[in-house]
Every structure is written in C-alpha cells, then in structure tokens.
Amino acid sequence: MNVLADLVLLAHFAIAVFLVVGMLLIPLGAYWQWSWVRAPRLRQIHAGLMILIALEAFFHITCPLTVLEALLRHTDPPESFWAEQLSKILYWDLPLEFFTILYGCCVVWLLYLWKSVPPIKKS
C-alpha cells in the first residue's frame, strides 16, 4: 500500500507543480509569444484545477488526494525517502486561512491572465 500511497503523493505533487509553473509560464509565454500558452484545453484544465482547489480551501474540504494517500498509508508517515521529501514540500503546517487567501489570490491571478493572455479561440 505504501507504493500506491507514494504514487498518489507523486500525482498530487505533479498537479501542484503544473499549477505553479503554469502561473509563471503563461505570462512569460505571452511576453515571448509562445503559442502553446494560449492553448484552450491547457488553460481550461489549469484554471479549473486552481478554482477547484480554491473552493476546497474556502469550504474547508480536504483534498481527495490527501484523503486517499492517508487511507493508503493508514495515516502513517511516509516510509520512503522520496515520499517524505515530497510531503515536506507539498504539505505546509499553516492555518487554513492562509491557504484560502493564497488560493484565492491564485484564482484572481489566473482570471487576470485569462483576460490579458486569452486562450486562442478555435475557428
């Protein structure tokens, strides 16, 4: 079960990296005129995930990936080195209000990017 828990943690971490890197690369890509940053499906997935995470924080809902990982681990700490390192990066011991504000700011940033760097409309 720990291997499955590690895979869930890795997927969770990959999603977090995708969101953070996207928020940085979209404006940079607009500046450097990279066409892929305007891909509609990429932008929809990116914005949708961020809005979902912000709503989870606002309504105090634990992320399903966190719940699944805890179930697979039986709430034991990670046993593998990589799982422990990823957990330290992914799970911050801060008040829920911090995350609500952080994710809300991320959504506002993404809405700004959606307006200033709009996805290309398919014809």
Rank of each mutant, 00 (worst) to 15 (best):
I61L: 14
F59Q: 06
Q33Y: 06
I120W: 07
K122W: 05
L94T: 05
L9Q: 12
F18Y: 13
A39E: 14
L90M: 09
Y103D: 03
Y112L: 15
P95Y: 06
L7V: 04
Q85W: 11
H46D: 04
I61E: 05
Q44E: 06
L28M: 14
Y112H: 13
T62D: 09
F98K: 01
V20L: 14
L10F: 13
A83Q: 15
I15L: 14
W34V: 01
G104S: 13
A30L: 01
H12D: 08
I120L: 14
L4T: 03
L72T: 04
K88R: 11
W34M: 03
C63N: 15
A83G: 15
T62E: 13
K88N: 03
V107K: 11
W82C: 03
P40R: 15
F58C: 04
E97D: 08
K121L: 10
A30H: 15
F81S: 08
L94E: 08
T62I: 07
Q44H: 09
I26S: 00
A57K: 02
L4E: 06
G29V: 02
L94F: 10
I89W: 12
V67K: 11
T75A: 04
F99I: 08
L68F: 05
P78L: 03
L94I: 04
W82G: 02
L24H: 02
L4W: 13
P77K: 11
P27D: 07
L19P: 00
A47Y: 08
L86F: 05
V37N: 08
L25S: 06
F59I: 09
G48W: 03
Y103R: 05
L55S: 10
F81Q: 09
K115V: 13
L7C: 08
L49D: 00
Q33K: 14
A30Q: 10
Y103K: 08
Q33L: 07
L42S: 07
F58D: 01
F13E: 00
S80I: 05
A11C: 11
C106H: 06
L24T: 04
L111N: 07
Y91V: 01
P119N: 08
L102K: 03
A83L: 06
